[in-house]
Design a protein around this nucleic acid. Sequence first.
DNA 1: CGCGACTTTGACAGATGTCAAGGCTTGTGG
DNA 2: CCACAAGCCTTGACATCTGTCAAAGTCGCG
Lengths: 264, 264
Amino acid sequence: MSDRERGLTLFLKRLTTRSKLTAEEQDAILALPGEPTEILANHDFVRMGERVDHACLVVDGLAARFAQTASGERQIIALHLPGDMVDLHSVVAPHTSLPLQALSRILIVRVPHAALIAITDQYPAVGRAFWRDAIVDVSLISQSLLSLGRRRAASRLAHLYCELAVRSGHLNRNDDADIAQSGAAIVPEAFAFPATQYHIADILGLTPVHVNRTLRLLREAGLVEANDGWVRILDWKGLTQIAEFDPSYLQLERVELHARARRG
Amino acid sequence: MSDRERGLTLFLKRLTTRSKLTAEEQDAILALPGEPTEILANHDFVRMGERVDHACLVVDGLAARFAQTASGERQIIALHLPGDMVDLHSVVAPHTSLPLQALSRILIVRVPHAALIAITDQYPAVGRAFWRDAIVDVSLISQSLLSLGRRRAASRLAHLYCELAVRSGHLNRNDDADIAQSGAAIVPEAFAFPATQYHIADILGLTPVHVNRTLRLLREAGLVEANDGWVRILDWKGLTQIAEFDPSYLQLERVELHARARRG
DNA sequence: CGCGACTTTGACAGATGTCAAGGCTTGTGG
DNA sequence: CCACAAGCCTTGACATCTGTCAAAGTCGCG
């Protein structure tokens, strides 16, 4: 399977989690054109003010959108995992107002705007699926705002790990049937998160030093371990309690349904 | 002029700031149906999880979208001034994930989803204008995230006032020609902001006590005065410096152009 | 007049930032 | 194979910012 196909498959999986699409619509998405590109860690791949004619789909690695104050302090606005179409909105607002950077070495596929416009023109349901997806992104950002405004460091960090666990766990499972059969945990014990403590500081609005202290706190409480680009969750319940984590904002209703079904 | 017409006129003004619309498209927007409703201060008008069949257009007063932690702490995610269509996205995601509340007594117009779908079906340019507008909302939220993550209290508060000054100043002027002729300041000396210090605390991720202290700081520095629901800007330059305010994220290009023209 | 909502202030506590230093890994070049 | 540098992680001591608690002041309104 080519990198392009792999990326589009992940993207399609993400879309169909929240929107119903016919086989024809799904095929059209998988047939989208796009050029794979590799980006080194800590390199911008869309710059401030740049005019783009394509949207970027993350296939491998970790990407981020960020903002900066005039004095150069950085705040990461959104994290993008494999399967995320990072700047779908550039179709309608081609002048980027927030730059995009690779946090680890990443692989992206650049999908031309023209193709995205064409597919939404032909299949309105695909357009609505795109829109719905964009709304989820806003929902994630809103939760970050809640975290930065109203949670302490430990709670912020725990919440970040909870969100990532669900987001990547959701992505890694093969399909719904698999889960229903195996009863495998939706939340994985461990997931890849190739960010440095500097990156985490930029996500949480903290300093790297304090991220380090907070990380130690969670580790010593036996909740979570993080090293070498991986996060291992040792006590999911404890972690969600500190985080006050409620996954409903991720709008993964179908997954929720399955979870309920297994319980019942 | 009816309340409905007044609201739609403000909404149209907002849209045409960023998108070109033909006379026919503009007329279609002004002809949108909608039922005016008055909401008392501190009352929710869209509740968590509620399924809605209309979008809310703010005509008068101040509204906010907010999020809450499990322990009940509140964070305001977005402020909505007159002319804002608050939950356009509900068209595609009718289950509200973030409640809406009136901060002051407000007047809204409820526009049925059906009418919004119809107008975007008939006029694709209107649909793109809606989309572009939604992107600006995300841009505002992103700046809030930057503020909460990377600015101190004084800077946050100053930034809030700067943003509101531009947003309401932009709205209050009659039209571009007026400004070009009169050379009136785009930033008004004073603007209405009927929020209590408790509300401001919920916006900035601070406590009401600290908002009060910070407000005094700005007042004693001769930058800004706030009381009785009004904000008076005494030193715009000083305020923007403390805030590190750069209005480009508001994406008011046309206003920018005029400003440049007057300078040149 | 008294109540309620909001604002203002002070004293103190707790959380986070700042500064500085050292340790650990990894890759590079001699 | 070793020396070294660069990037990242870890830690301690201290400074600063913001939160907490408590009380009093102001204002409009019934």
